Structure formats: C-alpha cells, structure tokens
Lab assay of single mutants.
Amino acid sequence: KSPLTGYVRFMNERREQLRAKRPEVPFPEITRMLGNEWSKLPPEEKQRYLDEADRDKERYMKELEQY
C-alpha cells in the first residue's frame, strides 16, 4: 500500500471527527473546511502528521526493496 502524505493523514483523522459533529455538511464542504484548517495549523502540530508520513514512506520503501 502506498504511503500517505501528512496532509492526507490529517484529512482522514479530522474528517471523521467533523462528520460526527456536523453530519449535515456536504463532503466537498468538509474537504474545503479541513484544507483551510490544515493551512492554518501551526508547524509544530503539522509535524506529527509529517513524521507519521515519513515513517510510512520508509516502510513502503523497505517493502519495495523486498519485492
């Protein structure tokens, strides 16, 4: 499975939280809201997602080498 970027990891995590709080909001609007939230997120909060993405990318590269 391909590695996910930090942005995609953030979107996946927050999308479920936002949909639970506001189920009436259409999917494209949720994506737009989360995109704005990501762009305003402080670098230190973004870093968690970026670090997870880096670890996932390393895992993926190792799997490719073994293939």
Rank of each mutant, 00 (worst) to 15 (best):
K1W: 04
K1G: 02
K1S: 03
S2N: 13
S2T: 14
S2W: 02
S2D: 08
S2A: 09
P3T: 10
P3N: 14
P3D: 07
P3M: 08
P3L: 13
P3C: 08
L4K: 13
L4A: 15
L4Y: 10
L4P: 09
T5F: 07
T5G: 07
T5S: 13
T5C: 07
T5Q: 12
G6L: 00
Y7H: 00
Y7V: 08
Y7W: 08
V8T: 10
V8Y: 10
V8G: 11
V8P: 02
V8C: 07
V8R: 11
V8L: 11
R9G: 03
R9T: 03
R9S: 03
R9K: 08
R9Q: 07
R9N: 02
R9E: 02
F10R: 02
F10W: 12
F10T: 02
M11P: 00
M11A: 11
M11I: 10
M11S: 05
M11Y: 10
M11F: 07
N12R: 08
N12Y: 05
N12S: 09
N12H: 05
N12I: 11
N12Q: 13
E13H: 02
E13R: 03
E13V: 07
E13M: 06
E13G: 01
E13P: 00
E13Y: 00
E13W: 00
R14N: 02
R14A: 03
R15C: 12
R15S: 13
R15N: 05
E16V: 02
E16N: 09
E16I: 11
E16D: 06
Q17H: 04
Q17D: 03
Q17G: 07
Q17P: 06
Q17C: 03
L18K: 13
R19E: 10
R19H: 03
R19K: 14
R19F: 08
R19N: 11
R19G: 09
R19M: 14
A20P: 02
A20W: 04
A20M: 09
K21G: 09
K21L: 14
K21E: 15
K21V: 12
R22Q: 13
R22E: 14
P23V: 07
P23Y: 00
P23S: 07
P23A: 05
P23D: 01
E24F: 09
E24C: 07
E24S: 07
E24A: 08
E24W: 04
V25H: 04
V25C: 07
V25F: 02
V25K: 09
P26I: 01
P26K: 09
P26Y: 01
P26Q: 07
P26N: 10
P26T: 10
F27E: 15
F27D: 15
F27G: 15
F27T: 15
F27S: 15
P28G: 14
P28F: 07
P28T: 15
P28A: 15
P28E: 15
E29N: 01
E29Y: 01
E29C: 01
E29P: 01
E29R: 01
I30L: 12
I30Q: 08
I30T: 06
T31C: 12
T31Q: 14
T31H: 08
T31P: 04
T31G: 06
T31D: 14
R32P: 05
R32V: 08
R32T: 08
R32I: 04
M33V: 15
M33L: 12
M33T: 12
L41F: 00
L41I: 00
L41Q: 01
L41H: 00
L41A: 01
P42L: 01
P42S: 08
P42F: 00
P42E: 00
P42G: 06
P42V: 00
P43S: 04
P43Q: 10
P43K: 05
P43H: 01
P43N: 06
P43T: 11
E44Q: 06
E44K: 10
E44T: 07
E45W: 00
E45V: 01
E45T: 07
K46H: 00
K46P: 01
K46L: 03
K46M: 03
K46Y: 00
K46V: 03
Q47K: 13
Q47T: 11
Q47H: 02
Q47Y: 08
Q47A: 13
Q47D: 01
R48C: 02
R48H: 10
R48S: 08
R48W: 03
R48F: 03
Y49E: 09
Y49S: 02
Y49K: 03
Y49P: 01
Y49R: 05
Y49T: 02
L50F: 11
L50K: 13
L50P: 02
L50Y: 14
L50W: 09
L50E: 15
D51G: 08
E52F: 01
A53P: 09
A53C: 06
A53H: 03
A53R: 06
A53E: 14
A53F: 00
A53Q: 10
D54I: 08
D54G: 08
R55M: 11
R55P: 11
R55L: 07
R55V: 12
D56H: 06
D56S: 07
D56A: 04
D56W: 01
D56K: 08
K57Y: 07
K57R: 12
K57W: 03
K57A: 08
E58F: 04
E58H: 07
E58R: 10
E58L: 05
E58P: 10
E58W: 03
E58Q: 09
R59V: 13
R59L: 08
R59G: 13
R59D: 14
R59T: 12
Y60D: 14
Y60F: 09
Y60Q: 13
Y60T: 15
Y60N: 13
Y60C: 12
M61E: 13
M61K: 11
M61Q: 11
K62A: 12
K62R: 07
K62H: 05
K62M: 09
E63C: 07
E63S: 12
E63D: 11
E63M: 05
E63I: 00
L64G: 15
L64H: 14
L64D: 12
L64T: 14
E65V: 10
E65A: 10
E65R: 08
Q66I: 05
Q66E: 14
Q66L: 11
Q66P: 11
Q66K: 15
Q66G: 13
Q66R: 07
Q66V: 09
Q66Y: 09
Y67H: 03
